[in-house]
Computed example of a mutant assay.
Amino acid sequence: MNQPEINVQAGSSINSQYVTPPGVLGPRALNRALLARQHLLQRSTMPPLDMLEHLAGMQAQAQNPPYFGLWTRLESFRHEALSSLILDRQAVRIVLMRGTIHLVSARDSLKLRPHTQPMLDRWLKGLMNKPLLGLDTAAVALAARSLVEERSRSYQELGLLLQQKWPDYAAEDLARAARALVPLVQVPPRGIWGAGGQALHTSLEAWLGSALDDDAPLDETILRYLGAFGPATVKDAQVWSGLTKLRDVFERLRPRLAVFRDEAGNELFDLPDAPRPDPDSPAPVRFLSEFDNMLLSYADRSRILAEPYRRLLFTVNGIIRAAVLVDGFVRGMWTIERRQSEATLTVQLFEPVLDRDRSALEEEGARLLAFADADADHHSIRIEAGK
């Protein structure tokens, strides 16, 4: 169990058996800072687009997780609020941080995509060493852009069309190269709540009618990361972004940042005025979506996820399961199953919880079901107790 500790902020109370030294932030202090940045201590009234930008995007391999992610952070969030942003081209689904699909604002897509290109170039270089050895990548990029701007296409179709010009290479590898070379967005109905269908792509520039912002400073992106995920180490920022060699960026920013240390002695950087609540601040039960960036944006996840639980959430095929927070930390996972007119929420706890927390799980779970399956005639909640 996490032991209570003192906050480094002035005015914090000292009523614990274990006290961290001045300037040192333990897991509970880091946890409460993260929850505050993510609006999980109290839901926000900001518009969904503003929340997307505050979070610097939301990981979105699957269609529905961003909806749940916004629901758990925003007051009175409705599905159509996000769907309309995608349909109106104010928000887009595009490969960004860590080489994964993210849902971001249109403004951010133009700024963030150039920052992620070095990571994609590094990944593409690995392909060029064997399956794509000798390929003219500039020609592939030009051909791929022409094809998707002519008509939105799936990766499979794009790869097969490219293979007609480069028959010595596998269609799948050619599509992967195009994904790294051209900023491709998934067009609606992909990403729309309740809509199905194959993911189709066009270029970001064609979709938005705007050019990439190649002059957007990386320093500002790192400051935004700290605003949503700090305090954090250089390695944490590299895990979040997929980039390397960020030490120089942090050194440039050092005069503008507050600096702490974690219990292992690692430097933690943060925005001076960002919230760092008392570690003993109460944290309500929250349901995180699949692929929530809170679980993916740190080299050391102990501020929210105990290592023994990581293997329960992170599957071998890359799925990050939806998690339950109790007292701010991952204590289980959840799924919703729909059978005809009944929707059932199952919460699988990793450890026992207090009766009051179980009641809170049921209350918040009922709200989750009302959001996820409002048209179901019957809602039920099953909580499987931890051992």
Rank of each mutant, 00 (worst) to 15 (best):
A141E: 15
S341N: 09
Y225S: 01
R113I: 02
R382V: 07
A322M: 02
A366R: 14
L103K: 01
R190I: 13
Q59S: 03
S44C: 05
N317S: 13
E149D: 14
A360T: 01
L313Y: 04
R254Q: 07
L135D: 03
A91G: 03
P272Q: 12
Q61I: 05
I383A: 09
N2F: 09
G196F: 07
A343R: 04
K111A: 12
E364D: 02
L103V: 02
R252Y: 05
G242N: 08
N317C: 10
P22M: 09
L55A: 01
A370C: 13
P231H: 09
K245C: 08
R358Q: 15
R32K: 14
L124R: 10
L200Q: 10
L325K: 00
N64L: 06
I192Q: 04
W123L: 12
A237C: 13
D214A: 14
I94C: 02
R356Y: 06
D219Y: 12
T233G: 03
L87D: 07
A206P: 11
V285S: 01
R153G: 02
A60P: 02
I336G: 00
L368G: 02
F77A: 03
D168T: 11
D168Q: 11
R153F: 04
S146G: 11
D248S: 15
I381M: 09
L354M: 12
L253K: 04
V249Q: 08
D262G: 04
M1D: 10
D355M: 13
H379Q: 10
R78P: 01
N129A: 15
M333N: 15
G242C: 12
V330Y: 01
Y298H: 05
G209R: 13
R276I: 05
M46F: 04
T116I: 12
R98A: 05
A141W: 10
D236F: 05
S12I: 11
P279A: 07
L295Q: 04
M119E: 06
Q42M: 10
R151W: 09
T202D: 04
E263L: 12
Q59R: 03
H102D: 14
L147P: 06
F291W: 07
E220L: 15
E157N: 06
S12A: 15
A175D: 05
Y67D: 00
V239K: 03
D280R: 15
